[in-house]
Amino acid sequence: MDLDKLRKTAAEVVSRDDVKYLIGWRRGTFGYRVAPHFIEDAAGVDELIFSPLCIANLANYLTLTEKLPVPRGQEADTRKVALLVKGCDSRAVAQLIVEKGIKREDVVVIGMPCPGMIDWKLLAERYPETDVAAEIGWKGEDFLLIRGEEEITIPRAEVLAEKCRLCRHPNPVLSDITIGEAVEPWAVAEDSGVAEIEAKEAAERWDYWEEQFSKCIRCYSCRNACPLCYCEDCILDRLDPIWVNRAVNFSENTAFHLARAFHLAGRCVECGECERVCPVGIPLGKLNRKLARTVREEYGFEPGLDPEAEPFQASFKPDDPEEFIL
C-alpha cells in the first residue's frame, strides 16, 4: 500500500476549489481503532491512513452529512465531496447514485483496490488491544501486525472479515482516481452462514431468529450505519401510521428487522456495516445476503455495480419468477 501516494493525491484533491472536503480514515484513539477522517485542507492528509482495519464504509457520510439545514443568511455549500472507497464502499456509492442520493458529479471517488479487511473483533480476541500503538498492514496474502518491537504475521484466514471472505468485488466499481493496482478477485467462499440456516427446519429457523431478535435493544445502529438506509424520516420511527411499536420485545423487534431487511432487498451492497456495528451481535448480514443471493441468482441482478441501472424494486421483467403464485 503506497500511503505516500494516497496522501499526495488526497492533498491535491482537497486543495481543489470545487472540493469541500475529503472523507477517509485515520487512526483511532486506542488500540486497533480507526476513525473516519474529514479533511478540509492539505494539512489534514498526514493523518490519513489505509490499513486492513479501515473496514468502515464511509459512503454513509455522503447522505449523513449532506443536506443539513442551512443556517439563515448562509448559502448551501454545493462543492464536491471526495471519498475514499474500497470495492464494497464503491458499490454503495454507485447504488446511491442510482437512488439519486448523490449525483455522480457531486462526488470525487478515490478508489482503493482492497486486499481484504480484518474483523476487528477476531483480531482483538487473539491479540488483545494494548495501549501500545499498533500498525497493521498487508503482507502478501496475510496480515502483518507491528506493535512496538513485535512483528506478527497473522494468517489471512484467521482474522479476515466474513464479508471479505464472500466479497465478489474487491476493486472499486467506479472511481475518479484509483490508488494502487487492481487486486485479483479471490475465490469466493460459500456463504455457509446462510446455507446453514436454510438447511434447518422452519421451526428451527424461527427459534434461531427468535433468539437473535430477542437480543435486539433497538438502538438502530444497524440502520444508521447502513449507507442505503438514508431516509431522514424512517417509517419505522413514525407515529402516524405506526408500523412498528417502540416497545422492545420480540414481536416488534422481529417486525423491525424484517422491514429493515426487506427495504434493502435488491439494494444491499453487502458492505456488512449493519452487522459490524450491532452491539449485541445479531447476524444481520445473513438476512441481507440471503435476499441478495435471491436477487442475484433468480433475477440476475446485483445492485451497486452500475450507477445507471434501473432500481431493482422499481422495475420488473415480464418473465420474473412466479412459481410461488397460485
Binding site: P69, V70, Q74, T78, E99, G101, P311, S315
Partner: peptide, 28 residues
C-alpha cells in the same frame, strides 16, 4: 419526507410522476 430517489418515477406506468427541485431548508 420524500428523498427524491425516483423509484416512484420509474414505477409509475402512466409517467404521472416527475422529480422537481425544491428548496428544503436552504438546500436545493
Amino acid at each position: 419526507t420524500c428523498r427524491g430517489c425516483g423509484f416512484c418515477v420509474s414505477i409509475c406506468p402512466y409517467s404521472a410522476i416527475e422529480l422537481v427541485t425544491i428548496n428544503r431548508m436552504g438546500n436545493m
